[in-house]
Write a protein that binds this DNA or RNA. Structure first.
Length: 427
RNA sequence: GGAGCUAUGGUGAAGAGGUUAUCACAGCGCUCUGUGGCAGCGCGGUCGAGGGUUCGAGUCCCUCUAGCUCCCCCA
């Protein structure tokens, strides 16, 4: 029979191999414990949702909706999408499960894979993992600040330092329209100087013109009126107070009037965590903001909320790149149980379990037959002792204990072996 | 959507048109059911896929696919 050709993972998707699991576990454990200390509760939602949920939340003119969404029809004809982010699902679950009657704010977090049909490159995958926080039902500035502070603490706790919070306010329904008009006026007679993409943005979403990276556009944008000047009193006060809270927390932040974010649902505060140096399009490890209108956009009553999402893949790859040491996963064995012959093999399983139950870090390789290969494995594992359990021993009810460093062997009674091992390993 | 680079056993590499594709490490097996850390021997690739040029291609050309990277954009 001809050899079958192997199958690759879908484009932009990859496996997380055993040797990398410790980094993932480290990042998730550290962040989860901090988040739970701040009384966020975990929520898990389906990885697919009705496509309309994302179109309504993220905005139909956003890149996510226009070209990055994985959508398909079910056999029943429903239009379904793989989730491109977590906030919409969380809010949907909040509304659907009547969480609006719980004491507010409702503080939720999620961890899981997200999907965007995008061109893969460094720090950017079609399936990637996010950890996100949402605080629903509290309009006060301290919420924004707490979220940002917590993000900073999380990066710190996994061992990543040197990140700045880039922050801006993009106003709300009452003051943003005036700003958008001003922006339109500003760009009107400069339209031939900006890139083609921006000409489209001019019609669809002027705000996005501000964070265009094209050389020509950046030049133009320098002259653009800053949104701060257009914030109304409540938005301005909100922003000011968020910054005051941040001053207290000592989180390093940078005011960035070009930061507008790609999702339509944001109001007022928006922010990104970026490294001090070598900023690229994929540098943001955490980003988020306030979204006071999303919940009513999704059919709830008007409820203020704020949140952020962290790209776990990016954090993990930074942790690896920086050589931060993380705890190993699994036991490092101190005893190897080698067995040979049918009789011994049969009894080995029970013996292994007895040793394990006694708290002895033991490994074995039951499938192997030759003592030679078993000892070789024992050696590679770096165990201190190997227990050799053969035909003869199984018959006599004994077992050989070999000290690996010296090669000294002695015979023990099978009934005594667990106690003896416990005693020896204590030293 | 646009651009560049890459693609040889599991991993890392050699092979710059010509006999059975080389090496290291790892894996597995055997020598060896009774002993490891430097043993010996063996197994496993048809060279990303498909076309083309040529007497002859891993080696040249084309297309596709994937990986990496950049633009766009995002976590």
């Amino acid at each position: 029979m001809a050899k079958q050709k192997t199958i690759q993972a879908p484009k932009g998707m990859h496996d997380i191999l055993p040797e990398d699991q410790k980094y993932w576990r480290h990042v998730m454990k550290k962040s989860q414990s901090l988040i739970e200390d701040y009384s966020f509760e975990r929520i898990d939602t389906p990885i697919v949702e009705p496509t309309e949920l994302f179109l309504r939340s993220v905005g139909s003119s956003s890149d996510i909706a226009e070209k990055e969404i994985y959508n398909f029809k079910t056999k029943g004809g429903d239009d379904i999408s793989l989730r491109p982010e977590g906030t919409a699902s969380t809010v949907r679950a909040y509304l659907e499960n009547g969480m609006n009657v719980r004491p507010h704010p409702v503080k939720l977090y999620y961890i899981g894979p997200m999907f965007r049909h995008d061109q893969p490159q460094q720090g950017r995958y079609r399936q990637f993992y996010q950890l996100g926080l949402e605080t629903i039902g509290d309009a006060s500035e301290v919420v924004d600040a707490e979220l940002i502070f917590l993000g900073y603490k999380i990066l710190d706790s996994v061992g990543l330092h040197g990140y700045n919070v880039h922050i801006n306010s993009i106003g709300d329904q009452s003051c943003r329209p005036a700003y958008l008009r001003a922006l339109k006026d500003f760009y009107k007679n400069k339209i031939k100087k900006v890139c083609p993409q921006c000409r489209i943005r001019f019609k669809k979403n002027v705000l996005r013109m501000l964070d265009c990276k094209e050389e020509g556009c950046r030049e133009v944008n320098k002259e653009a009126p800053p949104i701060i000047d257009f914030l109304d009193d409540t938005c301005k006060t909100h922003f000011k107070r968020v910054l005051e809270f941040l001053d207290e927390t000592k989180v390093p932040y940078i005011l960035d009037s070009s930061l507008v974010r790609g999702l339509d649902y944001y109001t007022r505060t928006v922010f990104e965590f970026l490294p001090e140096e070598n900023i690229t399009a994929q540098s943001a490890v955490i980003s988020g903001g306030r979204y006071d209108r999303l919940i009513d956009m999704l059919g709830g009553s008007k409820t203020p909320a704020a949140g952020w999402a962290m790209g776990i893949d990016r954090v993990v790859s930074e942790v690896k790149a920086k050589g931060i040491s993380v705890p190993e996963i699994g036991i490092k064995p101190r005893v190897f149980l080698a067995q040979l012959g049918e009789a011994a093999k049969k009894k080995s399983l029970a013996l292994f379990e007895n040793l394990r139950k006694a708290g002895i870090e033991v490994k074995s390789s039951f499938g192997r037959d030759s003592i030679k290969s078993q000892l070789r494995i024992a050696h590679r594992l770096g165990v201190k002792y190997t227990l050799i359990f053969g035909q003869k021993e199984a018959l006599e009810g004994t077992i050989i204990l070999r000290e690996m460093d010296t090669g000294i062997q002695e015979t023990l009674l099978l009934t005594k072996v667990v106690d003896e091992m416990k005693k020896r390993l204590k030293k």
